[in-house]
Simulated assay, not measured.
Amino acid sequence: MRIALFTDTYIPQVNGVARTMKRLVDHLEKRQVEYALYMPETIEKLDRFESNIHTFASLPFFLYPECRIALPNVFKLRQQLTSFQPDLLHIATPFNVGLSGLQHGKKYGIPMVGSYHTHFDHYLHYYKLQFMSAWLWKYVKWFHQPFERTFVPSVETMRHLQKHGFQRLALWTRGVDCERFHPKQRHRSYAINLLPKDKAVLLYVGRLAPEKDLATLVAIMSLLPRELNEKIQWMIVGDGPSLPEMKKQCPSNVTFTGYLKGEELAAAYASADLFVFPSATETFGNVVLEAFASGTPAIVADRGGVTEIVEHGKSGMICKAGDAHTFIQAIEHLLMNRSKRAEMGYEARQYALTQSWERIFDDLLEQYEQVIFHHKKRHLA
């Protein structure tokens, strides 16, 4: 089969969608599935030139500058797709690149699937744009309506969309590389080796932006009892529009590393005693699974896809979203109980080992085949 992928974000951009789409492309190559990828042009160039990767001029997206709004050349796109003759279009994002794929699929009767990655409706609250909610849902429902299936990363996301009238939903979860993210990576980093050895390391990894509920994270840091706070070193991995304000608000025992990748990121996860992640807007929570693979228990909010990764009291703790005090209680409990923390780290690693990317992507390819088969069957009837 020949698959055309449309995404408005891709590496080297740093976000869950970009990384997932890169892993999907790698798996298509591994399984020798023909594909064409359509994406915005980025300032940074890809590692190597690919004849089946097509880029369009782009501008930063005002709500999410790390992502780009493409300006597709529709005539060129039609020529490329006519030459490629895809059996299926997979449209990952609802912006300009995705819209171009949607228009082509509808015009030429090519079966299409979509994937839903981001709760943009939740983001509106953090950017004081709630007045746009009705319009946003109307647009997103219109965008996904022509798809044979819309893939979602968690049961929570599926239920959320069902409440808004979405149909033909299918589960496409996420996996983790348990060789890259591994407890053996602990302290394998010059920067992380500079952290105080006599303090517990509490880690956050993610975009530094309002929708990650960083206000709760700052509140946790500020409200921790002094005697406990003196025994803690915070490590914040990531970048984003909230970084300058966070640096002003956070106490002195916070280290900001910026974006990390590869061994540096793996070492950060493995060197932490606890992973603290208050975001209530996650459709899945890739970073939680990466922490688990590294043997690090997670303390998360009770909203979003993260609740399907963490088993409360076994591999981590689930706390009331937005409530700094419940997070502090969980931190205090686990830091005071070293054996319980070690047991949770073991359970977290065991769970991560069951989440193979290969199995997840092979299941997706099987669903592609089903959609193509049923589409041909309808048109032959």
Rank of each mutant, 00 (worst) to 15 (best):
Y38D: 01
Y116F: 15
V371W: 01
L364Y: 02
A134I: 13
D239S: 11
Q130M: 09
L265K: 02
L380V: 11
M246P: 04
E179Q: 15
T55V: 12
T257M: 09
E263Y: 08
M39P: 00
L99I: 10
I110P: 00
K30Q: 14
W234M: 06
P251Y: 11
G322C: 10
C319M: 05
T42S: 14
E227Q: 13
N15T: 09
S83Y: 10
R31M: 15
I220W: 06
W135L: 15
R303Q: 15
P40T: 08
D198P: 04
S133Y: 12
F284K: 02
R180S: 12
L89Q: 07
M344H: 00
R149M: 10
H27L: 10
W357A: 04
G16A: 10
T354V: 10
A330H: 03
V371L: 01
E66A: 06
A215E: 07
G206F: 03
H144M: 05
F75Y: 09
N15C: 11
A321I: 04
K141L: 12
K320D: 07
L365I: 08
V287P: 00
G206P: 05
V176D: 02
P12F: 13
H160S: 13
G304E: 02
N73L: 04
S115W: 04
C178W: 11
P225Y: 12
S315H: 05
I91Q: 03
L224N: 00
P12V: 12
E29G: 11
K45G: 07
P278R: 11
Q185Y: 04
F95G: 03
G109D: 12
V25C: 03
K212L: 07
G98M: 02
K212Y: 11
Q167Y: 05
E347I: 01
V254Y: 07
F277K: 00
R226H: 13
T283D: 07
P225M: 10
R149C: 05
M344G: 01
S222L: 12
R174Q: 09
K141A: 10
E230N: 14
P12G: 13
A36F: 05
K248T: 13
E358Q: 15
D177N: 13
V254N: 02
D26E: 15
H333W: 03
N253G: 06
A324R: 02
S279T: 07
S83K: 14
E282Y: 02
E245G: 09
Y116N: 08
L169P: 00
S83H: 12
T173D: 09
S315R: 04
R303T: 09
Q32G: 03
S339K: 14
E245I: 10
I328C: 02
N286I: 06
L59T: 14
A270I: 08
K138V: 07
E211R: 06
V176S: 02
K231D: 05
M112H: 03
K212V: 06
L260P: 01
T173V: 08
N73I: 04
C67F: 00
V74T: 13
N52R: 14
Y35C: 10
